[in-house]
Simulated scan of single mutants.
Amino acid sequence: MSSIDVRFADVPGGRLGYRDLGDPDGRPVLFLHGSGPGVTGWRNYSETVGAFADEFRCIVLEFPGFGISDVRGGHPVVDARNSCVEILDHLGIDRASIVGNSMGGIVGAGLAAKQPDRVDRLICIGGVGTTLFSPGPAEGIRLLMDFLAEPDKPALHRWLRSMVFDQALVTEQLLEERWAQVNEPGVIESMKSLYNPAAIAKVSRGEVSFDLADVTAPTLLFWGRDDRVSPVDMSIMPMRLMPDVELHVLPNCGHWVMIEQKDAFERQAREFLLRG
């Protein structure tokens, strides 16, 4: 496996951070991270990407505005979607599979809907869809908004605890790492630009959203049965409307499927990607 050091690409939208690992001649897989405070692509996937590196070229992208890639100032979902195209173009990749966690799944599904020629196969970990039976916003989103209103360590800790079923995963080290990343320039502002009434209004006007039926790439949805950020009933709409989709719901698991159900996620995701 090649170096795991972050690299930087100067693209039309600004500087993008990414890591390029695995088989350079393998089929490319683009790993897209979520939207929580202190998140990075490497924090989401550092313990997982190695399971794919033998057969695939693995690109772990850092979205604009999360402390590593340049802030762009637009809607974070749109900026992230544009950054996917830009990093693929920079690397000379016409078409890639996508693994997206939460916001990363939304970004990947939006790219698959709007530019289907760029997406081979799609794996989404929560995030995609809308609640049908659970009240909204979900508990984890409410705790995130509380943190953004008054950013401090106790609020960050409460939000982190909502992300997982196994509370032992929320260690002091994790809290300190996330707190340090949150305090990078522009990170809080980027989060606020995603979780505010104006950004939500753009979603309702269709400026950010997409038609699930337009996601024609073969798709695998992962969901934690105990997800308090994206309740499992969110999976019903994409499961019904995406034309080529399957859903795996994993027990004793919150929002971070690739961490709490690591072995099952890696085994099932690899099998799905290798079908192509």
Results as ranks from 00 to 15, higher is better:
P64Y: 13
P151A: 05
G110P: 01
A180L: 15
L122S: 08
D120G: 12
G92V: 11
L122T: 10
N82M: 13
F147D: 06
P64A: 08
C124L: 10
L88H: 06
L132T: 07
T130F: 07
F66W: 14
L148Q: 01
L175V: 15
R142P: 01
D120R: 11
A80Q: 03
A80V: 03
F133Y: 14
G67R: 02
A155G: 07
L156I: 10
L122Q: 13
G108A: 01
G104R: 09
I141H: 01
L174E: 06
G92E: 04
S97H: 09
G74S: 06
G136C: 02
E139T: 03
L88F: 11
R95E: 13
T130I: 14
G92I: 09
T131E: 05
L91Y: 06
R95P: 04
I68E: 08
I123V: 15
W159N: 12
R142H: 06
W179S: 09
V99N: 00
G100Q: 03
A113Q: 11
G136W: 07
G129N: 01
Q115E: 14
P151G: 04
N101A: 03
S162T: 12
N101D: 10
G105V: 01
R178M: 09
G92C: 00
A138N: 05
R95N: 01
L169R: 15
I123Q: 03
R72I: 10
L169N: 06
R178K: 15
G127A: 02
V71L: 14
G108D: 02
F147E: 09
V107R: 05
M145W: 03
D166V: 12
V71Y: 11
V71A: 14
L148I: 10
A138L: 06
D94L: 08
W179M: 13
G67N: 04
D152Y: 03
E172N: 09
E177N: 13
G100K: 01
V77Y: 12
I98V: 15
T171I: 13
H157C: 00
L169K: 14
M145R: 15
A112F: 01
S83A: 15
A149D: 11
F63R: 08
S102R: 03
E139W: 04
C84D: 07
A149V: 08
Q115P: 00
S102V: 02
L175Q: 13
E150H: 15
M145D: 02
A109I: 10
I93A: 11
G126W: 09
A109T: 08
A155M: 09
V170A: 13
P76F: 11
I98D: 02
A180H: 07
V78E: 14
D79K: 05
F147A: 05
C84W: 07
P137F: 03
P116Y: 04
